[in-house]
């Protein structure tokens, strides 16, 4: 067990050394402050590390991650993150990213008892599943259903974020935009969710020729 810990301590040494070798000013610059352009609200899932999968570097993305990338209207944690990022850091984009093979979305396909904490947290996602029952039943298997629930949950999150007073103001005053993404784990690829109200589409746009 201590091996696992040694590994990340050693990993950090490599990171610190390589970073200062690459550019000795990196940490001086970093110490001065942050100016990220993106707020990322993603899943806590270990397979979706935002900075790595977006080929970015430290300082680029302000991050909140929770179980199934939920944005509940009554959640102070995420509300504080949004407020800080939008009002004080003045990010330009808010991105909500769900993913395929999501444990939280999968658990929301049924009503298994996960303990009162997780049951309560996932309740709104399970409600989404109930609301879209007919559509979900059409899909081939639970994998496809979980992906669709993840998409619906991202769309729901976007609706909630857009109602945040500071976000509304920033959208009006300085063109802040809110976007939905789905990260496809088996493919290692990000997809942009369509704005359903604008297009009447299914929500997920996949390039036709691939």
């Amino acid at each position: 067990m201590s091996d696992a810990l040694d590994r990340i301590v050693a990993g950090n040494r490599v990171y610190a050394q390589r970073t200062s070798e690459h550019d000795p000013n990196t940490f001086v610059e970093m110490g001065r402050g942050q100016a990220p352009e993106i707020l990322w609200i993603g899943c806590a899932d270990s397979r979706v590390p935002e900075t790595t999968i977006c080929h970015c570097k430290p300082g680029d993305i302000f991050v909140h991650r929770n179980i199934a990338n939920c944005v509940h209207a009554d959640d102070l944690n995420v509300a504080a993150v949004v407020e800080y990022a939008v009002a004080h850091l003045k990010v330009k984009k808010v991105v909500i990213c769900g993913h395929t093979k999501c444990g939280g979305a999968n658990a929301s396909l049924a009503d298994a008892d996960l303990g009162v904490t997780l049951n309560t947290w996932l309740h709104p996602v399970r409600e989404l599943r109930r609301k879209h029952k007919a559509e979900l039943e059409q899909l081939a298997d639970d994998d496809a259903r979980a992906t669709r629930v993840a998409e619906l949950n991202v769309q729901q999150g976007i609706e909630v974020v857009k109602q945040h007073p500071t976000v509304r103001q920033a959208v009006r005053d300085r063109g802040l935009t809110v976007h939905g993404l789905i990260y496809d784990i088996p493919a290692g690829q990000l997809r942009l969710l369509d704005d359903t109200r604008a297009t009447g589409g299914s929500g997920l746009w996949t390039p036709a020729n691939h």
Binding site: N12, Y15, T52, Y84
Partner: peptide, 19 residues
Amino acid sequence: SDSRIPAEAITGLGPGEMF
């Protein structure tokens, strides 16, 4: 949430290793 501290990058871990 600070953008300068992406956990996986500063600990040298890959996808799948840290929740």
